Every structure is written in C-alpha cells, then in structure tokens.
Computed example of a mutant assay.
Amino acid sequence: MDGDHLAGVADLFGGLTRDELDDALDELAFRRDENLDADVDQAVRDYYLVGVDIDGIEMFAPGPVAFPDPPEGAEDLPHILDVERREPPREALAEAVRNRLTTDVDQADAGSERARYLVDVTYDAEAWAPVDLADVRAALTED
C-alpha cells in the first residue's frame, strides 16, 4: 500500500492514532481478504503522513506530499471503527512538519538525493499549510 493510500485512510477520519491506524489497516486487510503491505513509518519518513500531538495524543494525518486516496474497501471504515472524525489544526500540522524538516536537515547532506527530496517537500508543505520554509530550503542547499 503506497503513501497516498495510507494518507487516504487517515483522511477518512481527519487523523488517527497509531493504534487506530493499525486497526483500520487490519480491518481493511480482513475485508479484502489479503495481506496489506503498509509501511506507516516509511510514509511518515516520506511526508505522506505527519504525526502531530493534539492534546497529548499523537495522531497521524495526511502530510504535505500526499494526494489522499483511500484504497478499495476503505470507504466503510468510518462506519466500522468507533473513531469520531477529527480536524487537526493546520497550524499544528505546519509546526509538526517544520520541526520534522528541521531535524531532517541535520541528517541530510546538502546536494544528496534526500536533500533534494526534502527541498521538494518544503514547497509542497508551503502550499499545504501556513508555513514558510525558506530557511529550511536554504539549509538544504548550502554547499
């Protein structure tokens, strides 16, 4: 399952805790009678999902590079799971992405493939939420 599909599952609810996301994926696999290959950690690493703390609870919402696309069979998940729709504030999502990008800058060598990817993420994030990431881009492109 790709990052857009994982973001699509989270988008059905606005945001899900890790346990809720795992439950949703388990239910989806059961309904489809197949093993779903879903790497949530990779989706977070690649900014398809963003983890944000809301009232002391970490939840995952669609991230700045995602085009949320619920996978086949996911449309019934909100009726099956006992999870109310949430609306994580855009400002909190923007801050979470800024914090992640700032941390990722320290781990990416300027000019590397990862740095180039993160530069693209900064542009996506600025279009996605109220955040200015020019300083992060500059740090990623320093030689």
Results as ranks from 00 to 15, higher is better:
T103D: 09
R116F: 07
D11I: 09
P70S: 03
E142Q: 14
Q107M: 06
Y47C: 04
R31G: 13
A29G: 12
L140I: 04
E72S: 06
H79E: 15
P71L: 07
E20N: 14
Q42G: 01
D2S: 13
D22W: 04
R98V: 03
P78L: 09
D33K: 15
A74G: 05
D53H: 02
L81A: 01
V97N: 07
V65W: 00
R116M: 11
L25F: 09
P89V: 04
A125H: 06
E75G: 13
A38Y: 05
L12A: 14
D23S: 15
V83M: 11
A74S: 12
L77S: 10
E113A: 12
D41Q: 00
D23Q: 15
E84R: 14
L28Q: 08
T141R: 15
E20D: 09
A139E: 05
L16C: 07
V105G: 05
A43C: 08
L36N: 08
G73T: 04
R31Y: 05
G56F: 03
A138M: 07
E84H: 09
E95G: 12
N99F: 08
Y117G: 00
Y48N: 01
R85E: 12
Y117P: 00
R32Y: 02
V9L: 11
E20F: 11
A96E: 09
V44R: 00
Y123K: 02
E20T: 10
G3Y: 11
A108L: 05
L25N: 10
A66E: 02
V52K: 09
D69M: 10
P88C: 12
P78H: 07
R32A: 14
R100W: 07
A108Q: 04
E95F: 07
S112D: 08
H5W: 05
G111N: 02
D4N: 15
D53F: 02
D55F: 02
D104L: 14
D69H: 04
E84P: 03
R18G: 09
R45N: 02
D132E: 13
E58L: 08
D76I: 09
Y123Q: 00
D82M: 05
L77F: 06
A29Y: 05
E95K: 15
E72D: 07
D143C: 00
L81M: 04
A134F: 10
E34C: 10
V44D: 01
L49Y: 05
D33G: 12
E20Q: 15
S112T: 10
V121N: 03
Q107L: 12
S112Q: 04
F67C: 00
L93Y: 10
N35D: 11
